[in-house]
Design a protein around this nucleic acid. Structure first.
Length: 245
DNA sequence: TTGTGATCATCT
DNA sequence: AGATGATCACAA
């Protein structure tokens, strides 16, 4: 299938073919693929009786919400996994025609006041990342929202190497915030996991402790996975088109 | 108001 | 082009 038509790879197929054999697919993953893979956002929305937004600027997060609706997630905006009983977090991942992620992936907001006293395995970040159902979406900006297409979902849990790498970043970043040095924490830090602002706008503030342990105000922050990290996951789990030569 | 879903806009 | 910081919509 790969490169069956050189230069005109069937992107909608090749990008989204899962690597693991169909016989190993079970439960939620199988259903996710059956319900979504290869279908446009408009098709899925139509089946669910939802309108498709036309303005991308006002539709941030819409594909993710549509995906949750299609798969029956009920977590809403609570800080718990999307499928709580299964401990599975659902994330759409915008990719280009080569399957390369177009954006970083939001993981969770950071509880600034106590992240420094939290263990990795008790952290929001770990609880979100321990099991993720990734749903690629072919979502280049040039493609109208309605025509963007769901790919083959794949279930991922961090390998021990991956977990170690994420934990390393998390401990550095959480440690800095916990010690009151949040001003030093920018998006430049962290090899795979980074910290970026997460708020309605840049004037929003939250309580956080300074270096003396006193409460002061600082911008809300969230953990994000860099595209380099998610790109490796996609490469491992899906068959991608061959680059043009 | 805060957390969820993320992508946008700008600068390097 | 890619990454960082800013921003948009919605729900509880």
């Amino acid at each position: 299938m790969i490169g069956a038509q050189p230069g005109r790879v069937s992107v909608l197929r090749a990008v989204f073919v899962p690597l693991d054999s169909a016989s190993r697919n079970r439960g939620r993953v199988t259903r996710a693929r059956a319900a979504l893979a290869g279908q446009s956002l408009a098709q899925v929305a139509g089946r669910l009786g939802r309108e498709v937004p036309t303005e991308t600027r006002r539709a941030k997060g819409w594909a993710g919400a549509l995906c949750e609706l299609a798969l029956g997630s009920t977590a809403g905006s609570r800080a718990v996994p999307d499928f709580q009983a299964l401990g599975i977090e659902l994330k759409t991942l915008p990719v280009n025609r080569m399957g390369k992620p177009l954006e970083s992936t939001f993981v969770c907001t950071i509880p600034l006041l106590d992240v420094g006293d939290t263990e990795w395995h008790a952290s929001r970040a770990f609880s979100k990342l321990r099991r993720v159902l990734w749903v690629p979406v072919l979502a280049e900006r040039s493609i109208p929202i309605a025509e963007r297409t769901f790919g083959a979902a794949f279930l991922w849990s961090p390998s021990s190497d991956e977990e170690q790498a994420l934990r390393w970043d998390w401990e550095e970043l959480a440690g800095l915030i916990g010690r009151g040095r949040q001003d030093e924490v920018t998006g430049h830090l962290g090899r795979f996991l980074q910290v970026r602002p997460k708020a309605a706008n840049s004037r929003v503030r939250r309580r956080v402790r300074d270096e003396e342990g006193l409460e002061v105000l600082a911008p809300p922050r969230g953990f994000y996975l860099r595209p380099e990290f998610t790109a490796a996951l996609v490469r491992r789990h899906l068959v991608l088109p061959q680059p043009d030569v």
